[in-house]
């Protein structure tokens, strides 16, 4: 099983190299002015494939990514997907395979089939997040990784567990939502961003502070409120409460002298109890 898988992977990698090399060569031919860059991309691809072949998936991924930056052939997504998959990054791998399937439709059927198979296998271990936001153009990040701006055309593949979805838009207060993702399920997040008025508050001739719209802004730029214990009313209320408590205690204590007793240890009497001497 392992031998079969290794053979299939190696075969697919070799196939991908052929595909990508041909793509790069074709594009280089079409754009001779970029010939040097294409050559560098081909070299990086070759180095990445070598690294992948010896099991150094991290180095392979670096090479493939660098090659893509130099020459963004969509067929490189297949290599990037494989490297990510074997590095244990299923989400990145799925994204790469999906981009490959979406953008590299002219790739050989075998490579496309391998990409579909790998993506499908990986997706069985993942869940999805569907993010919606009323404000278009809001930048969405999942666990700190930028995933795009709203409206997001696709749901986001992610690993099962709790994830943090953040939204950011100029002129709006950023928002963060936690979401629990379950394998094979779609978790929906409706994230709301609220506008903030960043215009400075104005001060009128008499010194009063008004908001940007001219309305009084008592709390804009106003001096911070003093702590509770620095307020007069606090001490007045505290004094009243303590005095009332003391008075109640006195009354209760004295009530024992008038009879009744019981609770205070003084026996109940019909005529009362009084202090003597």
């Amino acid at each position: 099983m392992t031998v079969k898988t290794t053979f299939r992977t190696t075969h697919a990698a070799a196939l991908a190299i052929v595909v990508v090399c041909s793509a790069i060569t074709a594009r280089a031919a079409a754009e001779p002015t970029d010939a040097q860059a294409k050559a560098r991309a081909q070299g990086l691809l070759s180095e990445g494939t070598t690294a992948y072949g010896r099991g150094d998936y991290a180095a392979a991924l670096d090479k493939f990514t660098a090659a893509y930056k130099i020459f963004p052939s969509p067929k490189l997504w297949f290599n990037i997907g494989q490297a990510n998959r074997d590095l244990g990054r299923p989400v990145d791998a799925v994204e790469a395979f999906d981009r490959f399937l979406r953008d590299a439709g002219d790739a050989p059927p075998e490579t496309l089939a391998e990409a579909r198979r790998s993506a499908a296998e990986l997706k069985t271990k993942l869940g999805q997040i569907q993010v919606s936001c009323a404000v278009d153009g809001t930048e969405i990040t999942v666990d700190g990784k930028q995933v795009g701006s709203t409206p997001l055309g696709e749901m986001l593949w992610t690993t099962p567990g709790r994830h943090q979805v953040a939204a950011q838009h100029a002129g709006y207060a950023p928002a963060i939502e936690d979401v629990l993702v379950t394998t094979g399920k779609i978790a929906t997040v409706n994230i709301e961003v609220l506008p903030v008025d960043l215009r400075p508050a104005n001060r009128t001739a008499d010194g009063a502070i008004v908001g940007p719209d001219g309305a009084a802004a008592a709390d804009q730029g106003a001096a911070p409120k003093p702590p509770l214990y620095r307020r007069t009313w606090f001490w007045v209320v505290a004094g009243v409460v303590i005095a009332a408590g003391a008075g109640a205690a006195i009354i209760i204590a004295n009530s024992g002298d008038g009879g009744g007793g019981g609770a205070s240890g003084v026996p109940a009497t019909t005529l009362g109890a009084q202090r003597a001497f």
């Binding site: 005529l271 009362g272 202090r275």
Partner: peptide
């Protein structure tokens, strides 16, 4: 010490009535 029970005259005192002296 002279004390009066109840402190204000009230209804008829029945036999068996009780009063208490609280002494320091």
């Amino acid at each position: 010490n002279d004390l009066y029970f109840p402190t204000v005259p009230a209804g008829p005192i029945q036999s068996g009535a009780t009063l208490a002296l609280l002494i320091p």
